[in-house]
């Protein structure tokens, strides 16, 4: 079910500005890969190229190859809408649809896929909410607005919404940066469970979090303001945090950066 991602020679642009330069990496199925690096180094931009969300920004474009198993996401006959149904995404700020109830939020993706059968939808809603560790907290108020939940619950609701369509890969863009430590812990536990089914890629500014949740860590950096971001190294999380191959990685991790 989970898929391998194989990126080669990827460049991402905003208009004429190259934000990400020449990235190649392999992400194994059923692992958690963390992207770390200073602000503006292109981690989020690169993450968004993995489900073709980068190009929804006017003027943005991508060069290079992203193979999902044996399909190139940027191939000629690929429909970006279909890509996004296969590669789900959770955003930095919890963004449940404010006009929908908890249940409607989780079912939104199914509805887009044309699933109308009430029984199928109800089962998927329960399964996804259980999967996001939210079921017990909301099972009695599924028809209440999703925007009425706490920030941490909203973020888990967004995760439930993303996994309801059974994607192969789950991308998370700083999913805990707007949450308190307890909610953060809940999400981190959840990531540990989800990796049994999904390939997970998470962008984080919190290095302890990267160390706690990920199997592999990629360090991104940029040479200076206005320069494109580059992948410095990717290795097992243990190695990155104990004995990285590149000096810049060690400087960043130990806080001796810049």
């Amino acid at each position: 079910m989970a898929k391998r991602i194989d990126v080669s020679g990827l460049n991402a642009y905003y208009g004429n500005f190259r934000a990400v330069e020449d990235i190649s990496m392999t992400i194994e199925p059923r692992t958690v890969t963390a992207f770390i690096g200073p602000s503006g180094c292109g981690k989020s931009t690169f993450l968004r190229t993995l489900n073709r969300m980068h190009e929804v920004i006017p003027g943005a474009r991508v060069e290079g190859k992203v193979m999902l198993d044996d399909e190139n996401l940027y191939g000629a006959n690929i429909d970006p809408v279909a890509v996004r149904r296969t590669v789900g995404m959770v955003f930095q700020r919890p963004n449940p649809f404010p006009t929908m109830s908890i249940k409607e939020n989780v079912a939104a993706g199914l509805k887009l896929n044309g699933v109308r059968n009430k029984k199928v939808v109800d089962e998927a809603v329960e399964r996804s909410l259980r999967g996001a560790n939210l079921w017990n907290e909301v099972k009695d108020r599924l028809d209440k607005p999703g925007a009425g939940l706490s920030g941490g619950q909203q973020q888990r609701l967004c995760i439930a919404r993303a996994i309801a369509v059974e994607p192969r890969v789950l991308l998370m863009d700083e999913p805990c940066s707007a949450l308190d430590p307890i909610s953060t812990l809940a999400i981190e536990d959840l990531i540990g469970q989800l990796k049994e089914q999904f390939t997970i890629v998470i962008v984080t500014h919190n290095m302890q979090q990267a160390a706690r949740v990920s199997d592999r860590t990629a360090f991104f950096n940029l040479a200076g303001v206005g320069q494109p971001g580059r992948l410095i190294e990717i290795d097992s999380t243990e190695k990155i945090f104990s004995n990285p191959s590149v000096q810049a990685t060690e400087d960043y991790i130990s806080g001796r950066f810049g």
């Binding site: 149904r85 955003f91 887009l112 896929n113 919404r161 993303a162």
Partner: peptide, 15 residues
């Protein structure tokens, strides 16, 4: 309409 809501829909595979 907040960009975040539009992106949420797009990321679910909405046209």
């Amino acid at each position: 309409v907040p960009r975040a809501h539009e992106e949420a829909a797009l990321a679910l595979g909405a046209t």
